[in-house]
């Protein structure tokens, strides 16, 4: 288990990370979420021992992460690159060996991974000869070639087209099922919601909420209601704190505070027009994110 305890980091006058704590379990995906500039990449670099925290500690399976330990981790940075003049097979072999694999083991693993990512016929090409999607797959393979116990992904889906996003998600699910601890960062909630089981949302260096995503949703005070979009939404004016947001394909999403009973809303809605759909839904990760990050911003 990765344990990050009360880490702080500043660069000159800029506070990048303030008192951040979280854990990432084997066999689960931990999502570090937040807007650009919130401190996600700095946190990841501290986890990987690239940067030293001013205060606080990072440990893996009870041991403080140092160069020997982080060398077993897998890392897919947000800014990705390959050696332009080096054949794909050679690059993957290089990264595998840097992570301590023997050439024989690395060769077998590369063959197996390139097979499952449909890259076998590209192994003898140079990066420039590959499509962008295939380059990204190579990069992902480079991050997991040595079967890391902890895989750290910084904005893993940025720049991927939808098909490759699905391929990548499938690969991540496979690794999680095999017991890998995955830590990813993102500012695109809809892309990571179905993968993450634990989250921490950070905004301007501070954690605003963290914990099990299912628990956060269950404990969420507001009700999210999806109902048929009727012409006249004036009825919600009678319920203080209720807001409406038009949704796609003929629905409207309502958000109601705990003081409002959904049954009362339904009665009022039926009185206002024909309603054939009325559903209480869990808050989406995006709703949670917007709640915290927006609130912080308007407070500032």
């Amino acid at each position: 288990m990765l344990e990050v305890r009360n880490i702080w980091k500043s660069f000159g006058q800029t506070q990048a990370v303030s008192d951040l704590s979280f854990t990432a379990r084997p066999g689960a995906v931990f999502g570090l979420l937040g807007p650009n500039g919130a401190g996600k990449t700095t946190t990841i670099r501290i986890v990987l021992d690239i940067l030293q925290p001013d205060r606080g500690s990072v440990s893996w399976q009870g041991k403080i992460v140092d160069a020997d330990l982080r060398h077993t981790f897998g890392y897919l940075p947000e800014e990705r690159g390959l050696y332009p003049q080096m054949k794909i097979a050679d690059q993957l072999m290089y990264f595998a060996q840097l992570h301590g694999m023997t050439p024989a083991d690395a060769k077998a693993r590369i063959a197996q991974l390139s097979e499952s990512f449909a890259l076998t016929e590209n192994l003898n090409k140079k990066p420039a000869e590959l499509s962008k999607g295939n380059q990204q797959k190579v990069q992902f393979i480079a991050a997991i070639v040595h079967e890391p116990p902890l895989l750290v992904l910084d904005e893993p889906f940025s720049g991927f087209d939808p098909i490759n996003v699905e391929i990548l998600k499938g690969a991540i699910r496979g690794l999680v099922a095999a017991g890998t601890a995955v830590m990813l960062s993102s500012h695109r909630m809809e892309q990571v919601e179905e993968l993450t089981s634990d989250i921490c949302i950070i905004d301007r260096s501070h954690a605003v909420i963290s914990g099990s995503l299912a628990q956060i949703k269950r404990d969420w005070p507001d009700r999210f209601i999806r109902m048929t979009a009727i012409q006249d939404l004036a009825f919600i004016g009678a319920f203080p704190g209720v807001s409406a947001r038009p949704s796609s394909n003929g629905y409207v999403d309502l958000k109601a505070p705990p003081s409002v009973a959904p049954a009362d809303l339904l009665r009022a809605a039926i009185a206002a027009g024909p309603v054939d759909h009325f559903e209480i839904v869990e808050p989406s990760l995006n709703d949670i994110y917007l709640h915290y990050v927006r609130a912080e911003e308007s407070a500032a």
Binding site: L48, A67, E79, G81, L82, Y83, F95, L98, A143
Partner: peptide, 13 residues
Amino acid sequence: SNRVMEVMIAAVR
């Protein structure tokens, strides 16, 4: 400039 450094720096000292 080709950003390989990011991966390298995480793997080695």
